[in-house]
Amino acid sequence: MSARVKRDELDRIARSYSLDATAVESLLDAADARPSRADRQDFLAGCARHGGVLSLAAGIVFFVAANWGRMAVFGRFALLELLFVAVLGIGLFKPPPRFVGRAALFLSFIITGALLALFGQTYQTGADVYELFLTWALLGLPFAIAAQWGVASAAWIIVLDTALLLFCGWQPRGGLLWVVFDGGRLNATHAILMAAFLNLALWFAFEKVEVRAVPDWVRRVALTCGMMFVTWAGVLGVTGNDFGGSSSSTRAIAFVGAILALAAVTWIALRWRRDVYPLAVAFASFVILGMVLIAEAVDTPDEASLFIMAFWLIATSTIGGRMLVKLMRQWRVETA
């Protein structure tokens, strides 16, 4: 799809040539700046379709969360499993790339999570919440892949990152991840770095192997989640507020790991010369780490650290914004 002229440029063209209303109508038509009636109907139909699937998914999740106490355990499981089999059947009968197939497999993914929640709730297995999400991500992966749909891929990434966030944030003692990151040789800081590098690896892999089921915006979701963990690790490295104490080696690992991740993302983006979004996210992380560093370094007076942080924000966002726009225009010309 070719890039359209942006609205700001259209405004400037209209002003520059003093176009009247009729001429502006021609300008907007020539620039394909207004969707046709068919396009608009298509958009509304798409919104209704996607909204319908999400509403159904939300309804199913609410239904399970209601903890329908009047039904026996067997009944609850049977209902959910019948629903699961039904949507899976639809997915197999009308497979992707048909929308019905995609939606059905997406719902299969959602119901997997609902089933696991019901299982954990019913049998009080003692599993932590992160284990629910992690198991959901692992068991739901085949459905997310089979759906061949960006929405399903994004949902899978969000479920996986919720599991990682819960593990890194609450440090529960148990489950699969605790086997590795038990606070002995590897601790929470390592877990955060692992989560960061996992997301970045996913982003890198999907950028390299362009899969239709993982479009641009889903890759950006993975990258953004990764950079959130990177920023978290960096903040821990600077502040030293680790969960299990602030040993200097842990802080150093966290800080160095964060800087390496930022450098890697920046280097890859500059090499590919395709999209400035990775640079923008890396830059945002850098700005946040800089702020935290200033807050740590400038002890007193408070006014000084506030002023320096304000100046840091203005200067970095201005310089960064200018560089990013310049690179964007350069790469746009190169790929045109």
């Binding site: 909204g51 319908g52 939300a58 309804g59």
Partner: peptide
């Protein structure tokens, strides 16, 4: 949510 979902899919 189920009713809304069904209505939206019908609308689509």
């Amino acid at each position: 949510m189920l009713v809304v979902g069904a209505a939206l899919l019908l609308g689509a």
